[in-house]
Design a protein around this nucleic acid. Structure first.
Lengths: 238, 238
DNA sequence: TGCTCTATGTTCGATATCGAACATACGGGG
DNA sequence: CCCCGTATGTTCGATATCGAACATAGAGCA
């Protein structure tokens, strides 16, 4: 399978032509395998990644090895904001949650472009604000909502970043993302399957009834979605 | 009580002299009363606030009225990052958690200064990255740690933003911040009081043994603290 | 002094999730 | 075709927190 058009990534697509022409020779297509680690907690970043068909999880791994997903990044975003935020690293890990393709840009070029201020900077910052909303809402959701609701939210956020309606993802992995036990995910997923909302088998989950998922999830999904739409309207992609 | 030196705020203190001289005529001292709302979810921000002695909570209020604190901002930071991130608003509310003073700058000036790129931008972005870490860690903590641990984390984060070791804060308010029931806070606080770590009475909490708090809290406190220290070293304040 | 409001303390059963152990079952490689 | 590893299903007691109701007690004010 060949790498998709770079403009499949919405941030790359939103670049004004002048910037895009400057970047074009620098960006590099990469295939991202399930489980691949794009950066490790505390390490200096060598590249930023613009996913096209892959989905990346930002997760925090605790001292005892348990983990929790802080945010998820797909073709709407970029992995490695610490680079242009000025911190160079973050205390989280970026892991490929769904295999696919993306493009990467070396850190020096990214920082150069960002430093020119202008449209690249504003685009990156608006995206970062949307990401902040996702993180904040994850905190709220972890506090107040049931595992059933959170699973729906997670499925919807993943779905929004995929082409079809099938996720290649075991319950075990979802449990790691949500920071709960695998058995809990099994129970919640069973309810959804019994209700005809999803169907799954051995690491493949198919969403059959998206509206039903939206009915079952908490307000957090809509808050995040609305904020992404507001900050990164698709008009930009034209 | 008079307003403290603006440079009590570490971001203002870290400004290079040229920027500081430009800002000085523009910043305005404000007294911030307990419970005062600096901005409301979704509203366009008219100012950014640099707390000196006050502490501000960023919290998300759910549809059903329950709330959860996403992050806390004291004299190390600034309230209203959405302004320079480009979003103008956020789906959260900023409330004064501890009365005190601060300075504010109107949004036009802030955006102007930020747009000049240079040191103001980099400072604001590094701060924003630290804030992102705090939010991310709040999500992790909400998922994995006990109320006892979270109360300790919360007390420590507040303490770091105060002068003395006394917090003016009822258990009811702490419960709102943490997104738990008041009774839960009472139980956790009782354990701490029985252990001689804190003492409290009718809305005043005194921390007697800070090291003990640090022993009882989870790793989240240290992660956040370390990241703030890394991104905003005190060298800047000189 | 006494009243009243607010802050804190206590108890109860209900519920969600955990932790662990074990059962089933699909599917690819030999 | 069978075996084995991985994915999923099931159960049980333990625990943390919830939700609600009620008890106590300091603090300010009439």
């Amino acid at each position: 399978m060949a790498a998709p058009d770079p403009k499949t990534n919405q941030l790359l697509a939103a670049l004004p032509n002048a910037e895009w022409l400057r970047w074009q020779p620098e960006i590099e297509a990469v295939e991202l395998a399930l489980g691949q680690v794009l950066y490790e907690s505390g390490n200096t970043l060598s590249h930023v990644y613009f996913p096209t068909t892959a989905i990346i999880s930002l997760l925090y791994v605790m001292e005892n090895g348990a983990s929790a997903e802080i945010a998820v990044v797909g073709n709407e975003g970029v992995v490695g904001i610490a680079l242009f935020m000025g911190g160079e690293s973050t205390p989280s890990r970026a892991v490929v949650q769904s295999a696919g393709f993306g493009y990467r840009l070396n850190s020096a070029t990214m920082k150069d472009e960002f430093g020119k201020s202008g449209p690249v900077m504003h685009l990156m910052l608006r995206y970062t604000q949307a990401l902040i909303t996702q993180m904040a809402q994850t905190a709220v959701c972890n506090r107040h909502h049931t595992l059933d609701q959170q699973l729906c939210r997670w499925l919807l956020l993943s779905l929004d970043r995929l082409q079809g309606s099938e996720l290649v993802m075991t319950q075990e992995l979802i449990a790691n993302m949500l920071g709960v036990r695998r058995e809990g995910v099994t129970e919640a997923a069973l309810k959804l399957q019994d209700a005809g909302v999803i169907r799954y088998a051995r690491g493949r989950i198919t969403v059959l009834d998206r509206p039903a998922l939206e009915k079952r999830t908490c307000e957090c999904y809509a808050v995040v979605k609305t904020e992404y739409d507001r900050l990164l309207p698709n008009k930009l992609s034209k």
